[in-house]
């Protein structure tokens, strides 16, 4: 999974064609860390179809808020740089995330 920063976000997500998934997480978010290994697995499964990225919001708070992300975990799917769908909070489990990807492939 590609590790994003507030500097690379625009180039790697907003200016990228096709499907891009961003896993928003933070140092303090324990459910995010528990979810991450499962998302890594999905990244392998959908390699070549969906670009998987992660963003630590601790260092990119304003950027996250600009993307309307104010609660974690948040898994957001972008298509051609436009926000398409998301799984947030209790909906952010691996079944829902995979269903979201399948729906938008």
């Amino acid at each position: 999974m590609l590790e994003l920063t507030k500097k690379t976000f625009e180039e790697e997500v907003l200016k990228t064609e096709g499907l891009t998934l961003v896993d928003y997480w933070s140092d303090g978010c324990e459910p995010c860390k528990a979810l991450m290994p499962d998302v890594e697995e999905l990244a392998k499964k959908y390699e070549g179809k969906v670009k998987f990225c992660k963003l630590n919001t601790t260092k990119a708070r304003r950027l996250a808020i600009s993307q309307r992300v104010m609660g974690l975990p948040a898994i957001v799917l972008y298509k051609d740089g436009e926000k398409l769908d998301e799984c947030t909070k209790e909906d952010a489990n691996i079944e829902n995330i995979e269903a979201m990807i399948e729906k938008n492939l």
Partner: peptide, 16 residues
């Protein structure tokens, strides 16, 4: 607005 300002988890969302 859950995850958009409404939260039930302080450790998850406080730093926003």
């Amino acid at each position: 607005f859950t995850g958009k300002g409404v939260s039930y988890c302080a450790t998850c969302d406080a730093d926003f």
